[in-house]
Simulated assay, not measured.
Amino acid sequence: MSAMKLLKNIIGGLAGAAALNLLHETARRLDPETPRVDLVGEEALSKGLETLGIEPLTGNALYTATLAGDLLSNAFYYSMIGAGKRKYLVARGLAYGVAAGIGALKLTEPLGLNDVPVTRTQKTQLLTIAYYAFGGLVTAWVINGLRKKV
């Protein structure tokens, strides 16, 4: 993969991750049934730090570190959507997004985390998948736009 293609994939991944987080942060302030992936992330970060013997963060520091980690990990994941032919970018974006949403629902409890913030209602579960699918689609659209010949 060329350096330029890799850069475009990373930019697309960052755009998708930012769109996902913007959607999540906005929606959670408006609707109590929205997924609270942020709470799952905070729990995961706290448990990870404890495992390493590091005092867990609290308050705004925990929120900020979780948000930064979420942006970076989702950007890395979403950037993989750009691997492969441009013809299938949107389909890959949707598939990666849906897979990430299902993973958020199905892997939380086996990883020892509280799954209630993402599974508490059917609406919450559907929105979890939809939010990640949205991030995947934004990624695909941005990468596609960057790859067009000018």
Rank of each mutant, 00 (worst) to 15 (best):
I11F: 14
I11Q: 08
I11N: 06
G12I: 14
G12P: 09
G13D: 09
G13L: 06
L14H: 03
A15V: 04
A15S: 07
A15P: 01
G16S: 05
G16A: 11
G16D: 08
A17H: 06
A17E: 09
A17F: 06
A17V: 10
A17G: 14
L20F: 09
N21T: 14
L22A: 12
L22M: 15
L22G: 14
L23G: 05
L23A: 12
L23T: 11
L23M: 12
H24F: 01
H24A: 04
E25W: 13
E25M: 13
E25T: 14
T26H: 10
T26S: 13
T26E: 08
A27G: 06
A27H: 10
A27W: 13
R28N: 08
R28P: 00
R28K: 15
R29Y: 07
L30G: 05
L30T: 11
L30R: 08
D31L: 12
D31F: 08
P32W: 03
P32C: 03
P32L: 08
E33Q: 12
T34M: 09
P35K: 00
P35W: 01
R36F: 03
R36A: 06
V37P: 01
V37E: 07
V37K: 00
V37L: 11
L39C: 03
L39Q: 03
L39K: 00
L39G: 02
V40L: 03
G41F: 02
